[in-house]
Every structure is written in structure tokens, then in C-alpha cells.
């Protein structure tokens, strides 16, 4: 998947791992979670509330709320704004991400 990285960007020794649905994903310092996922070829990390359709980053600047992900157990984080940190556990958010509140 290195091809997705812009040329001239070395494989930074400071690169670190986060996880997406349990599998490791490399991230570079300063990258958002969305950028790290794109770098790994992942473009969808949410399913919609009504149709269950896959979604990922769309506007890229925090305006559209399509990139919501569950990060370290907390749902509805905007992946295009939240910086990736070593060890972050990102999981696909289903619907509103609060299925545990259902009765």
C-alpha cells in the first residue's frame, strides 16, 4: 500500500501502529485517523443508520460528519480531524455507534 503514500515521503522511522477493526495500520506522526486509514487503502469505516451503507471521509475538513468512527470505544469521533496516536483502536462505527444503549 506504499503506493498510496505521496512520493518523497519516506517510510518514517517514527511511524507507528494503530489498529482498525483489530488489524494493524501504519500511521505517520501528524496524520489524522482518516489519513492513516486512507494510507492503508481503507476508505470506509462507518455504516449508515438507515441503510447500513459504508461511508468514510468525504469533505476532509470536519464539515460533513461522514467520517465518524469509534475511537478507543468512543463513537462519533470525526476521523478527519482527530490525530492518530500510537495504539489507537479504531473500529467501524455501525449506525449511531451506541447500540449498547438500546433496550
Amino acid at each position: 500500500m506504499a503506493r498510496r503514500r505521496a512520493p518523497g515521503v519516506p517510510h518514517d522511522t517514527a511511524a507507528f501502529d494503530i489498529s482498525f477493526d483489530g488489524r494493524p495500520v501504519r500511521a505517520l506522526p501528524g496524520q489524522t485517523i482518516a489519513a492513516a486509514l486512507w494510507g492503508a487503502g481503507v476508505v470506509a469505516w462507518r455504516t449508515t443508520r438507515v441503510g447500513g451503507r459504508p461511508r468514510g471521509a468525504f469533505c476532509g475538513i470536519g464539515q460533513c460528519y461522514d467520517c465518524l468512527a469509534t475511537v478507543n470505544g468512543e463513537p462519533n469521533r470525526r476521523a478527519c480531524l482527530v490525530a492518530a496516536r500510537p495504539g489507537d483502536a479504531v473500529t467501524t462505527q455501525e449506525g449511531n455507534g451506541r447500540a449498547g444503549l438500546a433496550v
Binding site: 496524520q31 482518516a34 489519513a35 486512507w38 476508505v43 470506509a44 471521509a57 469533505c59 476532509g60
Partner: peptide, 23 residues
């Protein structure tokens, strides 16, 4: 709404700050 469709400005923003491409 399919994944892989992104805003043009969004693609630019992700490239500028994250050095990544959507495809």
C-alpha cells in the same frame, strides 16, 4: 455516497495535511 467519492477540496486537504490519496 459510495466510499471513494470524496470532496475535491477534501482530497486536497487530506493530501496537504496527511500526505495520502483516496485511490
Amino acid at each position: 455516497t459510495l466510499p471513494g467519492v470524496v470532496g475535491a477540496g477534501g482530497a486536497q486537504a487530506m493530501l496537504k495535511s496527511g500526505l495520502v490519496l483516496p485511490g
